[in-house]
Design a protein around this nucleic acid. Structure first.
Lengths: 124, 124
DNA sequence: GTAACTGCAAAATATTTGCATCCTT
DNA sequence: AAGGATGCAAATATTTTGCAGTTAC
């Protein structure tokens, strides 16, 4: 399936580029300079996910957050870093420090979703 | 608020005790030997959460999974361990190994939700 | 008896999907 | 022209809530 360059796609991508933290669907919609349908945003984001352009964190509120894969533009698309969500300002950030997860024998990892919640430095 | 001993509560608790992995709301409902309303199950689980009897993992499918706090019955109710969800059998387990998360300066952690998905030993 | 708990229905929230139409290539 | 992308509405899915009736203590 070939990907086409559309206004929605470009807008959503540049919105993600403009922020250094992860955005929820709603946050993305609010930041767009044009109106894009809810469903379209989800579809674009899911396409980005498939293409490995963004990664997704699920917060403990059950919501999805999306962020560009800055560091992970290399081939091995591993996201073994933590995310942090501030309970005050709501920002979801990618924590730089990588974590090596040691699984029990015979287990293989495919995806890692890890989120720490608390208070960030600027909020306290 | 005082807690009362009811059939639903006892049933849900013993269901959780009978399994060594985390259960979703639906899985719990199916395992109960009596019929308990959807909303009641959620309310019971949330009470358990408040009381620190269970802990909750959010899977990357957005669903909540609940498991008894075996190891965490001590005072400091920290859940800095990983969870693993098998993409084949769907089991969500608590991985024994503790992980120390190093946050940037000024950050304080309140809750940790970490889930690795992949294939477990018995499924491959 | 009183406050906690329950069931039922309805609401709230988040995400996906069907389908006709539009637009990129 | 072909098929990928979009908008709209409707469907799913999960969890929560209001409220009246029930039950534990």
């Amino acid at each position: 399936m070939e990907r086409r360059k559309t206004q929605s796609t470009e807008e959503i991508l540049s919105t993600l580029k403009d922020t250094d933290f992860a955005l929820s669907h709603k946050m993305i919609q609010q930041r767009l300079s044009i109106e894009v349908d809810r469903a379209t945003i989800y579809r674009v984001l899911n396409r980005f996910l498939e293409d490995g352009i963004v990664h997704r964190v699920i917060s403990e509120n059950g919501k999805q957050y999306f962020a560009l894969c800055e560091d992970c533009e290399r081939n091995d698309h591993h996201h073994n870093h933590f995310h942090f969500r501030c309970n005050k300002c709501g920002k979801v950030e990618c924590l730089a420090r990588e974590v090596d997860i040691q699984l029990p024998a015979g287990y293989t990892a495919e995806n890692i979703n890890s989120l720490v919640t608390g208070i960030c430095a600027s909020c306290r």
